[in-house]
């Protein structure tokens, strides 16, 4: 592989990893803080992609679709937490798996009713539709670079939120000792609602910005969900930084696996998971 092909794969791997991080960060937060195994998390990614499709169609541009889509997904997050998820916090994982699996079916059915079962595409916004020429016949799409940049910004924002703000301190305090946090006046239920809605919005946002490169299709959440669980397990359950590192590792492994070992491409990420867990059974970052 020459240098420029390597560079392209590297950028693709990092971009895929960062996108996975957006989805996985919400999954690991909700799991680590509220103790919920949320199988429907991939559906939020799918909802985001379909929202991008509809809203970009409606407004004519992905840029205007994004803020609208974020608003809708935050509202969806609040509603779902209030209607369903808050009843799961104190329950056994079996109930959580049953209900959230049920939600996947509901989301797929609703998707089929609202949007049908066809595959759709979303146009890359004009502003970002160019490609950077690397050599005479190799170039790299600006949109993918922009995706990586936005994901990095969000990762930085998430870091600031969790490490630097009082809300972040309350989130961490509540995950370590709920009763004590409440005794200090923290409305932990509201903190949970906010964390959940944040997780939904992150996953949906990932779906929205991925729509132009991955297209929009039925069941697109399932694949992402599985790989995101791999990310959460490798990173260490509940650890956002673990998820970031693990997501990039997975992105690179998957991308280079497909190029270097095409026959085993489907297995490469799981082999990575097995190796990491042999080395550190609790994942890269133990909370």
């Amino acid at each position: 592989m020459d240098f420029y092909s390597f560079l392209i794969q590297l950028l693709n791997g990092v971009q895929y990893g960062l996108l996975l991080f957006l989805v996985a960060s919400g999954l690991t937060l909700v799991f680590g803080i509220m103790g919920i195994i949320n199988l429907a998390h991939g559906s939020f990614y799918m909802v985001g992609a379909y929202l991008a499709f509809s809203l970009a169609g409606l407004t004519g541009n992905l840029f205007t679709a994004l803020p609208l889509g974020i608003g809708v997904s935050v509202l969806l997050g609040f509603a779902l937490e209030w209607l369903f998820y808050r009843h799961l916090y104190a329950r056994d994982h079996l109930y959580q798996v049953l209900m959230t699996y049920g939600l996947i079916l509901v989301f797929e059915e609703l998707r089929s009713i609202i949007w049908g079962d066809d595959v759709h595409g979303v146009a890359v916004p004009d502003l970002l539709s160019a490609s950077l020429p690397l050599t005479d016949n190799l170039s790299y799409p600006v949109y993918r670079l922009a995706m990586s940049g936005v994901c990095l910004l969000i990762a930085g924002g998430l870091y600031g939120l969790i490490k630097k703000t009082r809300l972040g301190m309350m989130i961490r305090a509540g995950s370590s000792n709920r009763e004590m946090a409440e005794a200090l006046g923290v409305n932990i239920k509201r903190v949970y609602t906010v964390v959940f809605a944040l997780g939904v919005a992150l996953a949906a946002f990932a779906g929205m910005i991925a729509a132009p490169v991955s297209s929009v299709y039925p069941n697109m959440g399932a694949q992402v969900l599985i790989i995101c669980f791999v990310v959460v397990v490798i990173g260490g359950i509940g650890s956002v930084w673990g998820a970031l590192l693990a997501a990039i590792l997975i992105g690179l492994t998957d991308t280079f696996g497909k190029v270097l070992l095409p026959d085993y491409a489907g297995m490469s990420t799981y082999i990575l998971m097995a190796l990491v867990l042999l080395w550190r059974p609790e994942g890269l970052f133990k909370r």
């Binding site: 301190m169 961490r172 995950s175 370590s176 409440e182 200090l184 006046g185």
Partner: peptide
């Protein structure tokens, strides 16, 4: 809810201290 009671001006130093080790 406990947080509402706390906000009425009641503070608690529990048995076993209850510090947040991750903060």
């Amino acid at each position: 809810a406990p947080y509402r009671i706390a906000r009425l001006g009641l503070a608690y130093v529990p048995e076993g201290r209850g510090i947040f080790p991750n903060l």
